[in-house]
Amino acid sequence: MLPLVRLLQLASPALPVGAYTYSQGLEWAVESGAVRDEAGAGRWIGDLLEWSLARFEAPLLAELMRAWDEGDGDDASVAALNADFLASRETDELRAETVQMGYSLVRLLADLDAFAGLAGWRARLLALDEAAFPAAWAAAAAAWAIPVDMALPAYLWAWLENQVMAAVKAVPLGQSAGQRLLSTLGARLPALAALGARLPADQWSNFTPGLALASSRHETQYTRLFRS
């Protein structure tokens, strides 16, 4: 059961990486009127799950876990995948978000006895230049022997939970509405995680121009609760 316990720790909103300070463009979507209510928030978040997370971030995370699990011999693949993810961030805000969260997670893992005590893992992680959040998260999941088919839905759930809580604050929505969104969108996660686990690299795609525009416009939004 220990890998499950470690997975719950990684997916917990208590993980001190600052995820709660980001909305990934959702705050601007609310400001612009594109998202006005529970239904609109569900469409926005669900589309990002379907067309970005499941088709790019999830398969990249799975491949990162496999590369970390191969040992020192595949650290070049880890670095290349990390660079690919950084290059996929289309705005300053989105890139700064993943770099800040990755930095915070690396520092946390380096200090945790449960991670730092594993032979070689701390040094490998610290050697990764400008770690994106998925790269650091995948390192922990691989080091703690969490199976990919468990890690992917947990990673998607953590992202979903953060987006729903951002909607609860920004729209705003009530707590019951937030739970309805988590229930409805959460039911899609097993299929989306399975898609991400099997999607070949030549079919990865994060073509979500609405997200890029929302994030770009959020950078100059006059009043903001969130950093992205």
Rank of each mutant, 00 (worst) to 15 (best):
A212T: 13
E70S: 15
E63F: 01
P153K: 09
T21Y: 05
S77A: 14
P13I: 00
A119M: 12
V148Y: 05
L7P: 05
M150I: 00
V30K: 08
E70P: 11
A154N: 04
T98S: 14
W137E: 04
W204F: 09
G186M: 11
G46W: 03
R55P: 05
W28G: 12
G40Q: 03
L189W: 02
E219S: 14
A191P: 07
L49G: 05
R124N: 13
T220Y: 08
L8G: 15
A177Q: 15
V35S: 11
S183E: 14
F85A: 05
A166V: 02
G196F: 04
L94W: 04
G117W: 10
V35I: 09
P190V: 13
P16N: 11
F56D: 03
S176H: 06
P172S: 07
L173C: 05
G120P: 10
E219K: 02
W204A: 03
V171W: 01
A54V: 10
L118F: 13
W159R: 06
A177H: 05
D111F: 03
L26E: 05
L53D: 05
P59E: 06
A167V: 02
G210A: 01
E90Y: 07
A151Q: 03
E70I: 01
L105I: 11
A170I: 02
D149M: 06
D84P: 00
S23P: 03
A39D: 11
E93Q: 12
G33T: 08
L94E: 12
A119P: 00
A158W: 03
A14M: 11
D113R: 12
Q9V: 11
P16G: 07
A141F: 11
P172V: 04
L105F: 06
V164N: 02
V148F: 01
R122D: 14
I45L: 03
A142F: 06
S88A: 15
D149V: 12
S216G: 06
R43G: 07
P13E: 03
Q24E: 14
A177W: 02
L94S: 12
V148S: 03
D47M: 06
A67E: 08
M101K: 14
P153L: 08
L195A: 08
Y20Q: 14
Q179T: 10
D74N: 08
E97F: 14
D84Q: 15
D202F: 12
A138P: 09
A201D: 07
L10T: 00
G46S: 07
L8W: 11
S52K: 06
Q203L: 10
L211P: 04
A154Q: 05
L94N: 01
L173Y: 06
P134M: 08
R227N: 13
A132V: 14
M65L: 00
D92G: 12
L128D: 10
L160N: 06
V168L: 08
V99S: 14
L49Q: 08
I146E: 08
K169G: 00
D69F: 01
A151N: 12
E93L: 13
F85N: 03
